[in-house]
Each structure stands twice: as C-alpha cells, then as structure tokens.
C-alpha cells in the first residue's frame, strides 16, 4: 500500500518534469535554452518514473535493468545535448532553412 502510494507520487512528479520539458521545448526562445530545459527536465522525469517503477519490480534483476536504462538515457541525453550545442555554436542556429 505504502509502495503503491509512493509509486504514484514519484510517477506524478516525473510527469510534471516531462510536461516542463515539453513546455520548455515549445516556449523557450533559442536552441541553448531549449537544450537546458529539455535535458534536465527530461532526465529527472525519467529518473523519477523509474524510481517509482522500481518499487513495483519483481526482483533484483528487474531493478538493475531499470537502473541500467536510466544510466543509458542519462549518458545518451548528455552526449546528444553536448553535440547539438557544439554544432549549433560552430554552425549557427538557422542553417537548415535557407
């Protein structure tokens, strides 16, 4: 029962971060601020959902798998954000639209 309540709270908190990430993606003025909103909100959001799901996991193997997913997404998100930022910095923001 307590686990269920905690799961609900954690997942709801995660959803708030996802909503914030999407809002940032849509509302922020340039790539750099969007990047910032997105990577932070997004990874914390997934982390909270995963924490919530860990409370419901069947065994240690499942918990480890969930943890691995989070670590991988963190690494991928960080790398992608860094590369997008670097490329935008060296190439400018609007090169795709002539």
């Amino acid at each position: 029962m307590i686990a269920n309540t905690l799961t609900v709270i954690l997942i709801l908190a995660g959803l708030v971060f996802f909503a914030a990430g999407t809002a940032g993606l849509l509302r922020f003025p340039d790539v750099y601020s969007r990047l910032h909103a997105l990577t932070k909100a997004d990874n914390v959001g997934l982390g909270l959902v995963i924490l919530g799901l860990m409370l419901q996991a069947a065994g240690p193997a499942d918990i480890l798998k969930l943890l691995l997913i989070w670590v991988l997404v963190l690494a991928a998100g960080t790398t992608a954000a860094h590369m997008v930022a670097q490329r935008t910095w060296t190439h400018g923001e609007f090169e795709s639209d002539r």
Binding site: L25, V31, R34, N43, V84, R87, E95
Partner: peptide, 21 residues
Amino acid sequence: RGPGSGDRMLAAQLFGTTGVT
C-alpha cells in the same frame, strides 16, 4: 516549426526518452 535543425534534433531526442518511459 524548427527553425534550426538543432531544434528538430533536440525534439527527436526528447521523444526518445519519452518513448522509453
């Protein structure tokens, strides 16, 4: 909307994480 390709790529990255969730 874009406008830049960086914006589009970022959005795709966010979709990936959301899809995982």
